[in-house]
Every structure is written in structure tokens, then in C-alpha cells.
Computed example of a mutant assay.
Amino acid sequence: MEREFIKDYQRIVIKIGTNSIMQSQKKVNYQKIDRLAYVCASLQQAGKEVIIVTSGAIGVGASTLAYDEYPNTIAEQQALAAFGQSILMGHYNRFFQHYNQHVGQILLTRDVIDFPESLLNVRTALETLLAKNIIPIINENDAVAVDELDHQTKFGDNDTLSAIVAKVVDAQLLIILSDVDGLYTDNPMRNPEAAMLDRVTEITDEIIYMASGKGSEFSKGGMLTKIKAAEKMLAAKKAMIVTSSEDPTSLFKILEGDAIGTLFKSED
């Protein structure tokens, strides 16, 4: 089995996007959250250390308030993020408690990572939660994050955030759960001959071209942001997998070494 080495990975970051959290713009995918909670609780029970990076605060907030479309102004988006984040964590807490697994919320802004003292505090907080067998659930602090010339506080997307978190906690593997199976040579919706890549060892111009394209209407990311995350993971000599979020229990097979999704890992 060519991915046998994955069995030895103990600390794993799992990122799940808005498309996976939401069934539609007005419906939360409770079954998906439940299955993710079941898988992560089981992995913790088996001795793994799991960190979750989640999107979905604005999506959950908009669905709760029955919005037909997302607001356009930053102030309204940030208010919706603040409202939706507490509801999102309520969903996670409820489903994880069903499997007797505690979770803890951490909201980050970019400047916290950029300063050594605050970075140390973030790392200490995460390590302490893991030591207490509490799964950290991380999101960008969208309610306050802004981008200014002299003070950048936004990560921009949670694919980037998840790669940064993996580096902060020295995780061996980042798994990005997405609405696609992996990286394809072309858009499989348009080209029936498009093939999914099993492994990528370096980020080339050709790989970036394959990943180019617009994300969905209610998420910030697309495949290109995942490639940028992979670039960070490869630079840190760590592994990353992009795979479908359709069935979170596939994570069990991935961590047993099954070739599911696209693996980003440099040559040994």
C-alpha cells in the first residue's frame, strides 16, 4: 500500500468548508456535522490528535435568519459571522457531546500568528487543549478581521488558515474536506476525460493552471486556495490530502493508507 506511512501520523488537522457544512444556502447539513463528529471522536479514542478548522459561520447565520442572499457590506457580513459562529459551535458541541467528546473554540486573526508572543500563546492554548483530550475547533475571527495596509488581520480563506494551523501545532497531515474528490487535470464537469491526480510532489505552473477557477458562490475558496495551502505544507515537509467531504467516514480509510483523494507530499 503506497500510503502506508499515513498510518503513523498522530496529529492531524481536518479542514471542512462552507459547502460541506451547508446542504444549500438555507439548510445546514446536520448529517455531515454528525458524521464528522463521530469520526473525530473515534480517532481521538484511538489515540490520534485531531484539530478541526471550520468554515460556515456566515452560512449558518444566513440560514438561521432565512436570508435569500448574503449581505454585501462588511459590517453586515461581520455581524452575521458573529451571530452564526455561536450557532455553528452549538451544532458542533451538540454532536460531539453525543460521542462523549469535548471540543473547544479558538478564533484567530492573522496578526496573532505574525507576532512571536501571541503565536506562542496560540500554540500553548492548542497544546493544552490537546493534552486534555479536547478537540480544538478553529475559525477565522470574521467578526473583527479586516485588511488594512499597515495591519492585516485576515487570513483570506480557511484553506490557508488550516495550513498555518498545521504548521503551528506541527501536525504531520492536513486533510481538506471539499466538494470535489481531489485535483483533476481539467474540470470533470466539463471534460469527461479529466483525470484525478493521485499524488503531487511539487507545485508547478501546470498544477496552478489545473487548479485555476472560481469557487462556489457561498465560499471564499476554490481549488487554487487549496494549492496555496499545499505549497505551505510541502515547504514545511508535511503532507496534505484534498478529498470529498461527501462521506466523512472515508477519513478512517485515508488514515489506514487507502489512496483516496489527491495526496500532496514531496519525494522522500
Rank of each mutant, 00 (worst) to 15 (best):
D114I: 04
D142A: 00
P192T: 02
K237N: 15
N158G: 12
A211Q: 07
K15H: 02
T18F: 04
I51F: 07
Q10D: 13
P248M: 05
I16R: 06
S219N: 10
T54R: 03
G215Y: 02
V103N: 00
Q10H: 13
Y92G: 02
S178M: 04
L234Y: 06
I207F: 06
A195C: 15
S219Q: 07
Q45W: 04
Q77T: 11
D181F: 03
A166M: 04
E4W: 11
I21V: 08
I176F: 00
K27S: 13
N187E: 02
A259L: 03
V60N: 10
Q77E: 02
T153M: 13
E148K: 15
V144M: 03
V144L: 02
L130Q: 04
D268C: 06
K253T: 05
A229F: 01
K154Y: 01
H91E: 11
F264I: 01
Y9M: 06
T185N: 10
Q23L: 13
D157C: 09
V112M: 15
S212T: 14
E246D: 12
I241L: 01
G59V: 04
S162N: 00
Q172C: 06
Q172H: 08
A131W: 12
I113P: 08
E49N: 02
N187G: 01
Q77S: 11
A81N: 05
V28I: 12
F155Q: 01
M22V: 06
R110K: 13
Y99D: 08
D205E: 15
G222M: 09
V60Q: 06
F95V: 04
A235F: 07
G104A: 14
I137P: 01
M240W: 07
K237H: 15
K238I: 09
T124M: 14
Q10L: 10
I260Y: 05
L126E: 03
D247C: 08
D181G: 10
D258T: 10
V50T: 05
G47V: 03
I106K: 04
S219G: 15
L174T: 04
S216Q: 12
D68Y: 08
L126G: 11
A46G: 12
M22F: 07
F83M: 14
E4K: 13
R94H: 14
G182C: 10
Y209M: 10
S24I: 13
L36D: 06
M223L: 11
A75W: 11
Q85F: 09
N187F: 07
C40D: 01
E117F: 08
L107W: 07
A211W: 05
V180E: 06
E4Y: 13
F83W: 12
A57R: 07
E193V: 04
K154E: 02
I135M: 07
T128S: 13
G222K: 04
G59I: 05
A81I: 09
K253R: 07
S55N: 09
A171G: 09
N139I: 13
Y67E: 12
F83S: 10
E256Y: 00
D68R: 09
Y67S: 01
V168R: 01
K132H: 10
N100C: 09
S212N: 14
N191M: 03
A171S: 10
Q152V: 15
A239Y: 00
D258E: 15
I58N: 05
I106M: 11
G47R: 04
D179S: 08
V28A: 05
V112L: 15
E193D: 15
L107G: 10
I254N: 14
L234K: 04
I58M: 06
I33H: 01
M89N: 10
A236E: 07
G215W: 03
